[in-house]
Nucleic acid binder design. Structure first.
Length: 313
DNA sequence: CAGATTTGACCAAG
DNA sequence: CTTGGTCAAATCTG
């Protein structure tokens, strides 16, 4: 197999996925009620397109010696796909901000929907008695608490955190911490979104020996990976299973076949993780894993990646 | 004084 | 209506 430049492979892959998603969207006329793509799927495709551009830009930017911060290049892209950052107060409802999505649509406030599309996973973290009740607040990222809520049927309140750099670097990662009432030493931490702030990007110093973009993309993955090996991890629900511990935000393409939907999920993964799910890595060919699975909307929900796994390149 | 936390109010979804 | 998630003013902290 041709050993393509590692950077080019990833970059190409991003652009190809972006293009694929864009073409799918283009092939699906928006006002057609008979369109095989649901609104949700279209939104996901849009998300893919934007995210592909973001990652491609990040890769290119990571390869330059100057390394201009993403926040300067395109802060609005980092802020949210398609969203123009205004004052923080207007973020949740800005009637005119979605220039790339649903222009002219009445319900262009997609922020909550789009937020739901962010990758989401849950970890159960047990606190050690010696450390006291400080809770599982020592992850690598810095968070700012923005709310607390009593949850019906739960003994303990749920705390809401967002990335400290939400306003300065438009990083939309959030987490929720819920103490388990069954076992108060366990905290269930639900993360949503990948850090796009400088915390999720490696320090520029270490960028000479290893291909730059690989460091950039995998840095955060490694952090997550470390967390994963050290902690009990559990995913919840269909959505979480779908995203079942992505190491970068996954991209999706949909295809309608015989009334069912064929879904393709791709994500970057550290090579060791790829090795776990594929036997084809001895060639050292691809750090990317792709998953294709078929689900029939009329059938019972099947959350397994049952169909097949393969390397994409 | 700047940044973080607290907490009641608000809002969208169901 | 209820509920979970977020906002933002008030308050705290270093």
């Amino acid at each position: 197999m041709e050993m393509m430049n590692w950077e080019h492979m990833n970059l190409l892959n991003e652009l190809i996925h972006g293009l694929k998603a864009a073409k799918q969207l283009q092939a699906s006329p928006s006002p057609s009620p008979s369109s095989c793509l649901t609104t949700e799927m279209k939104e996901t495709l849009l998300h893919n397109i934007v995210s592909s551009f973001e990652k491609a830009i990040l890769m290119l930017n990571g390869s330059t010696t100057q390394n201009i911060p993403m926040t300067e290049l395109a802060p609005d892209l980092l802020a949210h796909p398609g969203r123009v950052p205004e004052s923080p107060a207007s973020i949740t409802e800005s009637p005119r901000s979605d220039e790339f999505f649903d222009v002219g649509s009445k319900d262009c406030n997609l922020s909550s929907k789009k937020r739901k599309m962010l990758p989401k996973w849950t970890e159960q973290i047990r606190i050690s008695p010696e450390r006291g009740l400080e809770g599982p607040h020592d992850d690598v990222f810095s968070w700012r608490k923005y709310g607390q809520k009593d949850i019906l049927g739960a003994k303990y309140p749920r705390s809401y955190y967002r990335c400290t750099f939400r306003n300065t670097q438009y990083c939309w990662a959030t987490k929720q911490v819920q103490r388990s009432d069954a076992d108060p030493t366990i905290f269930e931490v639900t993360y949503r979104g990948i850090h796009t702030c400088s915390q999720g990007i490696p320090p520029p110093a270490k960028r000479e020996t290893i291909p730059n973009h690989t460091v950039a993309i995998n840095y955060q993955n490694n952090l997550l990976d470390n967390l994963r090996t050290n902690l009990t991890v559990r995913t919840n629900g269909l959505e979480a299973d779908t995203f079942s511990f992505p190491v970068t935000s996954p991209f999706y393409t949909y295809e309608s076949i015989n009334g069912g939907t064929f879904c393709h999920v791709g994500s970057f993964a550290p090579s060791d993780f790829t090795g776990l799910i594929s036997t084809n890595t001895s060639t050292g060919s691809s750090p990317i894993f792709d998953v294709d699975f078929h689900f029939d909307p009329t059938a019972e929900i099947n959350t397994g990646f049952s169909t097949f796994l393969h390397n994409s390149i």
